[in-house]
């Protein structure tokens, strides 16, 4: 019994207004002709033109994108493995340490994670660059992934897996054919979370980035520090545009997949 009452409608409207209003204002003011961010002086696209000529921003964007895709993919694999181990592997030597290491990076202030990794990289003589940022981002985001995935694994009916094993599946097959499809939404949202965290991260990236691998947040931070620039509004509008396109595509793909699954289930029932 799902209810769409006035209360739900109001809370959704107000909630999404809160989440979206600052971004709408950003987008509107990115087309402002004035250099003063809070004074409207007519429509203009001049900030986009200056932005596209700014190679430092373009380079930083490319670095950020590569880091986010690679680190979130590795983090999803490692985080799902870790979640499976935490929920299903039972007792093993060093289990407490393992779960401690999954949860501790979540409480670790970013400044410490960043500095401690910087000291490690200095210690083993690894030059700072894209690789070091990827290693750093993978480490903290895999913990977020494993929290998301393990919460799904905990609520999951284990007898389904056992049934698959009884029916002759190997443990790997049971995982691929039964467990993975059921936890897939959590794995996908874990990937999304890891990707977001990597895109957003300023502090850890500041520590682990080398001079040739400045990420977008580092670049943005230094421009905000130097003074408010309408270019940042233009940049964020472009980012919001790209991200919206990506999110809408992803949701359409998911929708199509779930429709196909429903069709398969109906077909299976008929036979």
């Amino acid at each position: 019994m799902r209810r769409m009452t006035w209360f739900n409608a109001t809370s959704l409207t107000l909630g999404f207004a809160f989440l979206y209003l600052p971004m709408v204002i950003l987008i509107v003011y990115s087309f402002n002709a004035s250099k003063l961010v809070t004074v409207w002086a007519g429509f203009s696209t001049r900030w986009y033109a200056t932005l596209l000529q700014n190679e430092a921003f373009l380079d930083a964007a490319w670095v950020t994108l590569r880091v986010a895709v690679i680190s979130s993919t590795i983090a999803t694999i490692l985080g799902t493995m870790a979640a499976y181990v935490l929920v299903r592997a039972g007792r093993f030597a060093g289990r407490t340490l393992f779960s401690g290491m999954i949860y501790a990076p979540l409480v670790m202030p970013e400044v410490i994670t960043g500095l401690s990794l910087l000291l490690l990289f200095i210690g083993i003589g690894l030059d700072r660059g894209v690789l070091t940022i990827v290693l750093a981002h993978t480490t903290f985001s895999m913990c977020y992934v494993s929290v998301v995935v393990s919460s799904r694994l905990v609520s999951f009916d284990r007898s389904l897996e056992e049934a698959a094993l009884d029916l002759g599946c190997s443990p790997a097959e049971a995982f691929r054919l039964v467990t993975l499809p059921i936890i897939a939404p959590a794995v996908i949202s874990g990937w999304l979370l890891a990707f977001t965290l990597s895109l957003d991260d300023l502090v850890i990236a500041s520590f682990t980035a080398g001079p040739s691998s400045t990420t977008l947040p580092i670049k943005i931070w230094s421009s905000i520090r130097l003074g408010v620039s309408p270019e940042i509004n233009a940049l964020s509008t472009i980012l919001i545009g790209i991200v919206s396109a990506g999110v809408i595509t992803a949701s359409l793909i998911t929708k199509r997949a779930s429709l196909r699954q429903q069709a398969d289930e109906q077909a299976a029932q008929r036979t």
């Binding site: 204002i25 950003l26 990707f195 977008l216 947040p217 943005i220 940049l235 999110v247």
Partner: peptide, 19 residues
Amino acid sequence: LVILPFWTSFLIRVYSWMG
């Protein structure tokens, strides 16, 4: 829609509150 604003660099979003 909940995840979407989260994708944008949160520096930008904090900065928008400054405005």
